[in-house]
Design a protein around this nucleic acid. Structure first.
Lengths: 195, 195, 195, 195
DNA sequence: CATGAATGAGAATTCATTCAT
DNA sequence: TATGAATGAATTCTCATTCAT
């Protein structure tokens, strides 16, 4: 319990520092200091920097998926349900920006391949999670029968791109405008068919 | 002349190494060796690793934009023109994967802010470049009047996400399937309105 | 305790190497080797080469001043007291030649200004220390009422010049001859007033 | 002639840069730029950085000695003559501070021994030059029969110490006060014999 | 005579990791 | 379990010197 408490403190500190500085700029010293433990304690709990990083990403993505699942439990007409998927993905993306910033920016090599795989798997799980939701929509006939994995990648790619811009730039659009735009594009596309 | 030749050799080597390893893992030694020049020559031509990196990204993005512009010169019905935009963006993204891999993965901190700005500006130029094309389509009534910058970010985000998956993963979809899916989503959305 | 011991070992090694080679020629590798610690340990204890240098100079000057103070505690007729000041300054200058060689030769630029200030302050403290002694002599009427700071600078300048010559050159005068000459000049001047 | 002109330009630039930055911080690039010649030209005229440095110091000291000789040619009562020696040494020290700053601060090792010898010889020539003047005064009975070389070192040490303080510090004494103090100390000493 | 692009040996500094306590 | 002093391999950057033109 005391044990778990300490691991939690370390993980929180690591999440913060990795998000703020990126993997290579984050120093184990920074993390130890922020977690208020000695540097040795980091290694007592996680065998290396890479492993700690992987734990950060994996844990964070799991939390996000759990939150989305929770929010999506409500019964709604499909189109509202779909809008909810878009809106809560975006909200959680922004809310967990510390994790998603890691998720989207740190694919680079420089981590041992075993650990890199772990991170890639966390990403894939997220894509599959979205993909499953889209597949359900397709099976019920609400969505076009496009490749669901590519569709999920598209959804995540749009969300990622707009959220990153929102987080990085000062002349940012509001999160509501982002939600509306993403929903509009994903549901009806860019082309004006009335013409 | 000899001079420009050597700068080109360095830039090519740098592009390759940065794309393969990412900024922090790329070593100046590697780049020098690949360019077949002495390490000092790197510094004689580019004042720091960051500056060399920025030159790599900026130059690469410029090339991509020039290629897209060139391909888009043809006269076509709008919808074909739009499909062409999608298709050539994806093709160039994949073809210049060395540059785009840098583009999408290396926003992280760890570069002096002046140089980071240079890189961000190159990205913004690319977004504006796409944004301008979409705006033209809107003005002619072919595209819905959505925020053009967000639309451009969406287009780039989708392309980025699918191309990265294509490049990183073994069970990849073909590039044609990617082009079709992206075009389909962007033009008509995911929702099946016939239902 | 073990800690202080190691810092002492480093400081001793640094003093020796800086004195022998000067700041710019002294290599952190040399100092580490001489102190029998790893190079990282140097940086674990002193944040930079400059800081280590400053610690060397400051510590050395403090030791010298403490020794002079100690030797000057005895009660003597003024002129003997003054001769003692000259003689022990010179003896300590020669004995701590490792430090004083640094003191006199390394004002040059190439150290961050904060650290340079630290060193300059150590020098000023030494000048003030001598200056205070001269002032006391003036107040008691034993010394002429010349600007005490300039007088102290003169004393240190003479000692520095003669000791450096003594240390650098082979055809050196004995230290006793140096003490006599300095005392003679400082007490009565060069001019033969009997003529 | 054109030739000599260029060597002069290089020497002037080198003097300035060495004085401002010290030997190790002065870069051949800086000197070349200041002299408005290519770096290769430096090496065409002086075989190495050390040699250029030595030429700078040697030339500068020669100029100073020539100036002092020139000023000392006048016929005056001895004591006035001696005061003139002090005053013109100090004035030239301050005026050629670019050279004297080098003279006094750059004994450190890090120059090949052959060139270091050249510099030491220039310093010795200056000491001998002063020493000869003092010896003449002794022979005529105007000065006490102290070791003339040590006396010269004392004179130069005092001048050096006070001039350096004057040049480095803001709360500086005026050059007149320096001249008076040095003359007073050297002619009559610090001790108040009336007591 | 003059140039300046190219070189590469050399140095300071960083930081993940270890291990004695 | 927890600590933090110690490590040393690894990396960026500097700059005197060379030499083809």
């Amino acid at each position: 319990m005391q044990n778990q408490n300490k691991r939690k403190k370390i993980l929180d500190a690591a999440t913060h520092v990795f998000a703020e500085k990126g993997f290579h700029q984050a120093k184990m010293d920074d993390i130890a200091q922020r977690a208020q433990v000695a540097k040795g304690t980091l290694y007592y709990n996680y065998s290396s920097k890479s492993k700690l990083f992987a734990a950060t990403v994996t844990g964070g993505m799991d939390e996000i998926m759990a939150s989305i699942s929770h929010e999506m439990e409500s019964e709604l007409p499909f189109i509202e349900h779909f809008r909810l998927l878009v809106s809560c993905t975006i909200r959680l993306y922004l809310h967990h920006s510390q994790v998603t910033r890691i998720y989207s920016n740190e694919l680079s090599i420089g981590i041992d391949s075993e650990t890199l795989d772990e991170i890639k798997k966390a990403r894939q799980r997220f894509i599959e999670f979205i993909s499953d939701m889209l597949l359900t929509g397709q099976e019920k006939g609400y969505l076009k029968p496009l490749n669901p994995r590519l569709s999920a990648l598209a959804l995540v790619g749009i969300v990622d791109s707009l959220c990153n811009a929102h987080l990085n730039e000062s002349n940012a659009s509001s999160s509501d405008e982002i939600i509306n735009t993403v929903f509009c594009i994903l549901s009806e596309g860019l082309v004006n068919h009335s013409k």
